[in-house]
Design a protein around this nucleic acid. Structure first.
Length: 273
DNA sequence: ATTGAGACCTGTCGGC
DNA sequence: TGCCGACAGGTCTCAA
C-alpha cells in the first residue's frame, strides 16, 4: 500500500535498524524483482555501513560508506519486516525475497508478493544521472513545492489534472489514493485539464493554491496516521467510496468512479469542479 | 510531445 | 467448495 505516507512510515520504522549499522550479509532469494538484481549486488553490499537512510518520492535510499546508494521501491505490494535482535525470529515467507543481516543482529526482510518492487545499487554517477530519480518533481512537503511550482509543471498541459498529479515529474510521491483525496479536498474535478489551474501568463490561479495546500494537508495527515499506527482502519473521503455519499459538509453528492489512465478515479461530481 | 493500452505478478473478493 | 473474472495503493514500454 505504498504511496508517500506509507513509504515515509517505512523509512521511520527502518531507520533505527539501518542507519550507522553495517550490512553483514544479504540473502537474495531470487534473481529479480521487477528487474534483475545488479551484478555483484551481494558482494557490493556485504560489509557496508549505512550512513543515511532517506526517502525521495516513493523510493527509499540507503547511502553506504562505499559511496554507493542502495535504492529501493516497494511497488504495489512491497513491505519490510524487522526481526529485532533478541526478539522472535520471523518465519520465512515465500515472498521474502531479500534479507539484510545487520551488525546489530537485526534481520530486515523485504517481502513483495507481486514483485513490482525494485532494488538496485547506484554509484554516485549513476544516482545523479538516474532516468527516474534525477527527473522527479519537488517533494510535496518541502518548501520547494507550492502553488507556483505546481502551476509551472501544469502550464499548457491538456492531460487531466488527476493524471498530472500521478506524474512523478510534476510532484513526487502522490499515488492513486492521495491524488484523489487531494482533488476532493481542493474541490477540483479530476477530469479538468491540468493547464486550467494556471493563467495564460503562467501565474497560479486560486485553484492551484487550493490544490497545493490540499496535497500538503492530505499527505501530512496521512503521515500522522501512519506513525500513530492507526492506519489499518483508515477510511478516505472519496477513494473506494463509489456510490456512497460525499462527506464534505453540506454536499451530499454521490461519489462516482471512472477510469483515467487505466486507473480508478473516485470523485464527487457535485463539489469537485 | 502526449496519451492510451498493455505488460509485469500474485492475491483477494464477489458472483455463480 | 470451486471456478472465473475483476480488481488492487506502481511503473515501464510501445504504438499512435
Amino acid at each position: 500500500m505504498p504511496e508517500l505516507p506509507e513509504v515515509e512510515a517505512v523509512r521511520l520504522e527502518l531507520d533505527p535498524y539501518f542507519t550507522h549499522y553495517r550490512i553483514e550479509d544479504v540473502d537474495v532469494r531470487r534473481p529479480d524483482l521487477r528487474d534483475p538484481f545488479p551484478r555483484r549486488f551481494r558482494a557490493r553490499l556485504a560489509g557496508q555501513t549505512v550512513e543515511r537512510f532517506l526517502r525521495r518520492a516513493k523510493y527509499l535510499l540507503a547511502t553506504l560508506a562505499s559511496g554507493d546508494t542502495l535504492a529501493m521501491h516497494l511497488g504495489m505490494s512491497g513491505w519490510f519486516h524487522v526481526s529485532a535482535p533478541g526478539g522472535p525470529a520471523r518465519v520465512l515467507d515465500k515472498h521474502d525475497h531479500v534479507i539484510f543481516h545487520m551488525s546489530s543482529g537485526a534481520l530486515i526482510a523485504f517481502n513483495d508478493p507481486r514483485r513490482f518492487g525494485m532494488m538496485t545499487l547506484l554509484t554516485p554517477k549513476q544516482l545523479a544521472a538516474h532516468p527516474v530519480l534525477s527527473t522527479l518533481g519537488p517533494e510535496p512537503l518541502s518548501d520547494t513545492f507550492d502553488a507556483a511550482a505546481l502551476a509551472r509543471a501544469c502550464r499548457g498541459r491538456k492531460t487531466p489534472l488527476k493524471v498530472a498529479l500521478l506524474d512523478q515529474g510534476v510532484v513526487a510521491g502522490l499515488g492513486n489514493i492521495y491524488a484523489a483525496e487531494a482533488l476532493h479536498l481542493a474541490g477540483l474535478s479530476p477530469m479538468r485539464a491540468a493547464g486550467t489551474i494556471v493563467t495564460a501568463a503562467g501565474e497560479p490561479r486560486e485553484s492551484a493554491y487550493r490544490l497545493a495546500a490540499a496535497i500538503k494537508d492530505v499527505l501530512t495527515r496521512a503521515i500522522a496516521r501512519q506513525t500513530a499506527k492507526s492506519y489499518r482502519s483508515a477510511r478516505f473521503q472519496v477513494y473506494d467510496r463509489e456510490r456512497e455519499r460525499c462527506l464534505r459538509p453540506g454536499c451530499g453528492g454521490r461519489i462516482r468512479r471512472r477510469t483515467q489512465g487505466g486507473r480508478s478515479t473516485f470523485y464527487c461530481p457535485r463539489c469537485q469542479k
